[in-house]
Design a protein around this nucleic acid. Structure first.
Lengths: 220, 220
DNA sequence: AATACCAAAATCTTCAATATTTTCTGGTTT
DNA sequence: AAACCAGAAAATATTGAAGATTTTGGTATT
């Protein structure tokens, strides 16, 4: 039935999980809304079991809430959640960056510069057609922040960073749609961050990173 | 079939997951060993579906490895893994403790002292009959470290801490069985940690905590 | 010794049926 | 009118069996 899985999802479960993850990020499935297996099957296809498994997965990722014997629902997205995710992201990515700066060499710097270029470009484009480009824009952001921690030498930190990034995606999209997240300040901040990394200025780098992460939410 | 679930597991999947988790921690299921669904069913009971779900869960927790179309196996436990988990635990718990020290009040201090008392006692007991008391001993440790971060006000940090603790359990048990993890130094270190927390001496506290976590593995 | 191919084993997925739990509803009692 | 209880309806949880797909292992061929 799923012979047309053009995504890189190898199994049906992963495919379903990716679909649902995406729709939760975009707010198509709003926070706290119930996820009835039957309804979802009509929408996405797939068997009940595959869905249970996919939802258990997403529950473990934190964007879905599983209540025993009472089914699943989209995890709530309170102000406290936003603050928690953002604060932790700043700490974790800061730590990962610090470690990466110890191990990363020329090759890493190249990747970083490339990722920065891409995300700067995505920033300039996205405001033109938010709905169409939001995912692409966020993917560029994901890549940039992934590169930051990619040389930290700690697979578990990398995984946790990735998870927090996905968890924060909902909030990011919400802000993007509502008042446009992207501005000159972020681009400049990113520039400062990359410069500091290249100069191996740990202090400056972590500070810029923290402001880059907190900026869109705490900022003006 | 599972009418006798005296554990606090509400569902079959959680029950199975707990069993497997435990057996992996104890080394009954050694690292890298394959987890064939059929074999497991004979051992633990439960349906194939429940097992798939449980194993997907454990895979997300990091103690099981899932290879698409190639089944599950117990996650490998290399020296690099040990170092990664331990280092991250030190960082995360340190951060959580720092935050807890900002918010925690008298009530928290009481819990901390109580937990310390329990783990000190467990330390003295465990060497008498390692096999029988290992789990209880580790539970006391878990409680102590959980209390440390319990007031950090970040549910996600707490969850991550807990996950890392479980991931490190295998290594802890291995060391415990092999050469006896417990010694006067750890008890003393824990005392210093608690004293520092009560005195709100952040510097001393994080240093003691780091040595407490790294000690059993990096130490003499 | 290397490769191609076929059969066996294992995993993945779905359909169907039963058991259990929660939720809803309507009537009764206070 | 509010609280309460029983029974019906809905939803979830669990299991069994069977088909489809993929991996694995052995065998024959070059």
């Amino acid at each position: 039935m799923f012979g047309f899985k053009n995504d890189d999802a190898a199994t049906v479960v992963q495919f379903i999980a990716e679909q649902v993850r995406r729709d939760i990020s975009f707010g198509v499935l709003p926070p706290d809304s119930r996820l009835k297996i039957e309804d979802l099957r009509q929408r996405y296809g797939g068997s009940a079991h595959s869905f249970r498994e996919a939802l258990t997965l997403l529950a473990n990722e934190g964007i879905v809430e599983a209540n025993t014997q009472r089914g699943f629902r989209v995890a709530s997205a309170s102000q406290a959640d936003l603050e928690d995710v953002t604060r932790l992201r700043a700490e974790i990515e800061g730590l990962g960056l610090k470690w990466s700066m110890k191990h990363g060499a020329v090759r890493w710097e190249g990747e970083l510069i490339a990722a920065r270029h891409a995300v700067d470009r995505a920033d300039r484009m996205v405001m033109g057609d938010i709905d169409a480009l939001a995912l692409e824009w966020d993917e560029a952001n994901r890549e940039f922040h992934a590169v930051l921690v990619s040389r930290c030498n700690s697979p578990r930190l990398i995984e946790f960073q990735s998870r927090l990034f996905f968890e924060s995606r909902r909030f990011r999209f919400a802000v993007l749609k509502e008042r446009g997240i992207v501005g000159e300040e972020l681009t400049a901040l990113r520039g400062r961050l990359v410069d500091a990394v290249l100069a191996r200025d740990e202090q400056q780098a972590t500070e810029a990173l923290e402001r880059l992460i907190l900026g869109p939410f705490g900022g003006p």
